[in-house]
Amino acid sequence: MTDSGVTRDIAVEVRNLVKSYKSSFKRQTFQAVDNVSLQIESGEVYGLIGPNGSGKSTTMKAVLGLISPTAGSCRVFGADSTRVDARSEIGFLPENPYFYKHQTSAETLRFYGKLCGIRGKKLTNKVNELLELVSLEHARDRRLGGYSKGMLQRVGLAQALIQEPQLLILDEPTAGVDPIGSREIRDLILKLKSQGVTIFLCSHLLEQVQEVCDRVGIIFEGKMVNEGTLEELTEIRNQHEFIIKNASPALVQDIEDLIANNQQAEVVRSGKPRSSLEKLFIDTANEQKHNKKGNKS
């Protein structure tokens, strides 16, 4: 159920997932994922966060059908994730995606498109559209061997979207991408969300997860330790925040006096809110671009 009371389909359902690996001589067992359950509703953006080696990628691989659960199950739009059918609606961007270096980005997209059964004019249009979407039209005929990490990430995103999937699984989608590219990927995620695409992402950039995700799961040593909406998880229940615009020093003083006179309440922090370094970088870059255009004209 959503906040508005509308019932949605379940896009991803992970139920009591356990994944164990045996050591070389099968003497020791390592449990990568321990009884993890999660549900992602259709159209939702779900973020899975956790430190390195916590089981995020293993959970993703189980959803993708790249590994079989030791116990439990994973379903994608009701289909068992180990079945090939389940992958018809999945687009996947792996962390640090590697493609065939001998291909150009246009060839890469055509190859993945054909694997999904897209052919002819439809495929050509789709490839052009996606190259434009990820801003790689200028490099479409260059071999991927000469691409930067950020450019490869963009190709990865484009290939993930080639068959217009209803579920997008993104593993560190902005790894190696500069702040402007990172912002564009964030905007793209929000755009896809508005189109009803379900997104399941793993990221170390918690600020980014906070910006785009509806719900977040925190995984630690293979166990799901916390899960909920961002409001539920990030709310500090015994604190209140006001951000006041154009407040005079006198008004600020009055508010502080009012709080000081209250026996229970105390000011934890006050001052001017700060912009993020990312926002500062993007604003400066945009300003420079704008000035350059102005000088040319």
């Binding site: 790249l66 090939v84 992958r87 792996p94 590697y98 493609f99």
Partner: peptide
């Protein structure tokens, strides 16, 4: 090794 297999098998490819 190059993980290109990930992106292929994540498509509907038996």
């Amino acid at each position: 090794e190059d993980r290109t297999l990930y992106t292929i098998l994540c498509k509907p490819v038996p």
